[in-house]
Design a protein around this nucleic acid. Sequence first.
DNA 1: TTAGGGTTACAG
DNA 2: CTGTAACCCTAA
Length: 330
Amino acid sequence: MEERIESSSRHTEVKSGGPDSLKKVAGFLSMGAPKQKWTSEEEAALRAGVDKYGPGKWRTILKDPVFSVILALRSNVDLKDKWRNMSVTANGWGSREKARLALKKSQHFSKHDDNPLALSTVVNGIDDEIVDAKPLAMSNGHLQITGPKRTISRLDNLVMDAIANLKEPGGSNKSAIAVYIEDQYWAPPNFKRLLSAKLKTLTASGKLVKIKRKYLIPPNRMLVEERNSGVLLLEGKPRDSPRSERSDVRLLTRSQIDAELAKMRNMSAQEAARVAAQAVAEAEVAMAEAEEAAREAEAAEADAEAAQAFAEAAMMTLKSRNSSKLVAQG
DNA sequence: TTAGGGTTACAG
DNA sequence: CTGTAACCCTAA
């Protein structure tokens, strides 16, 4: 294990004149190459990529246009290293810190208790004090029940995302959409009912067109979505942007939701499922009522939306509870 | 291209 | 000064 104490081939490097001169080089200013700290978005994207393609497929993840937007400045090796670090931090001790610590002091077990499958979101903690907390909060959901009129819900985006990705000429039917979403993300057992209701409201509002049992996105809304602006917008450049500012806002937003959902799925244990299912059930009832009353009463629909928002809020609450690490240093 | 070991830089 | 995260290099 430790017979490789060979003389490291790294001693004299072409280091810059004096790195000590620069101290406050957190995020921006990648003059030479200080230290590109990972942002929450990047972590989320990485986790989402691993969740989809599996660990080890760094190159594949990087090829995905959705993730490449966020991880454009990272190499496959970077992904690998970061994943290693994340695993070490999330799980007790993967293999690296263990060896390291075990070698130094084999009597340090102050860690009270570690859930074998806790997986709390370890995103926070490396946050720069710049601009990160806000986008993260946004990507978690839309707790703005007191919003203007009707807040865009996450399921809406999921449905649109599914249809857009399926790319079926003539649109996709409900089953295809359901299969796609269920395959990609974690879905509650009564997800199909929710989807049916959502599909109906989306069609009613004109965001989707229903033709012969198939739903498709009207060309008009292909690019710009007035409804999203305001709630789901965010500038995708936490730090420097050397070149290529061509990142589509919509794409970035979608990927963020993507990543966030995948992350949630990754961390959701049976506990989360139980709590969430209960909340979702209430939303389902409200949605079903709305489905019937929507013919003439739109107030019920808004109520259903609120119920659904509450369901998501429940998930977030649980999530917060899990990730309550209180990183306050000593 | 990926997994692992080793080094440098930053924060406490 | 120590621990951790990002970076780097190399074998498989």
